[in-house]
């Protein structure tokens, strides 16, 4: 049974198609990377799976439950890492994690919170510092820790490596691979072709709201993918 499925999923904004008849199926343990230019429909796809916006037609399902905007029954299976992880600058890393975990219904001990932050790659000396002094990469790690703490089956990531330096991107890639190895499913929207090949198990190329290509990463090199991507867009 696929963890995540889109069936003829479409979304229009004021008559303009942002997503057209998307059919997508992602199995447990897969990392599916969506590539495409700005406006190709990557973020719209993620928003539809999160129930942030209502589909014009078709349906999106998570663990075979249809996602609806006014129903949070699928939310417990999903963790989300936005493009910009700001969180609360006046709260420390551990306080942010505690708060977002509590919202998801999890109450962890200080040790468990620290363990999640460490697992996300945040050094222990940063755990009790306020996020206002954190770099984008460090904030991203707290965002990952929030996703880890939720222990969700599916993690939706919207351009998570945007603005990260190569080291932070590499660390992030490792974390994603570890999560997939633990059986987590990841859908990631990204502009980064090389990272997509590196981290993903499958890659989809989107253009003007349509999924034009779907590839297995073990069947294509980064250079070939880049060539295909440039030809497609």
């Amino acid at each position: 049974m696929p963890v995540l499925q889109a069936i003829q999923l479409s979304k229009q904004y004021n008559g303009t198609a942002a997503l057209s008849n998307l059919n997508l199926s992602i199995e447990k343990g897969e990392i599916f990377c969506l590539l495409g230019q700005n406006g190709a429909g990557k973020t719209t796809t993620i928003n539809l799976f999160l129930g942030f916006t209502e589909a014009t037609s078709g349906k999106a399902t998570i663990n075979n439950i249809e996602v609806k905007t006014n129903d949070s029954s699928t939310k417990k299976y999903v963790a989300y890492i936005p493009e910009v992880v700001q969180l609360y600058g006046n709260l420390t890393a551990i306080e942010n994690l505690d708060f977002f975990s509590a919202i998801a219904g999890f109450k962890y001990s200080k040790e468990k919170l620290a363990e999640n932050l460490t697992k996300a790659g945040l050094q222990s000396e940063a755990h009790h510092k306020r996020l206002s002094i954190f770099s984008k990469g460090m904030r991203q790690k707290v965002g990952i820790a929030i996703a880890l703490a939720k222990n969700a089956d599916l993690i939706l990531m919207d351009e998570p490596t945007s603005g990260l330096d190569p080291k932070a991107t590499s660390e992030f890639t490792s974390i994603c691979k570890n999560l997939a190895a633990e059986g987590k499913t990841i859908l990631m929207a990204t502009h980064d072709i090389f990272n997509a090949v590196n981290v993903g198990t499958k890659i989809g190329i989107m253009k003007q709201g349509e999924l034009v290509h779907t590839l297995n990463t073990n069947e294509i090199t980064a250079t070939a993918l880049q060539q295909l991507y440039l030809e497609t867009i």
């Binding site: 999160l50 969180l87 977002f100 998801a104």
Partner: peptide, 14 residues
Amino acid sequence: ENQNLKLLSAQGIS
């Protein structure tokens, strides 16, 4: 503005 609302919603806040 800082996408916390999206994150909160994804965490299942009412």
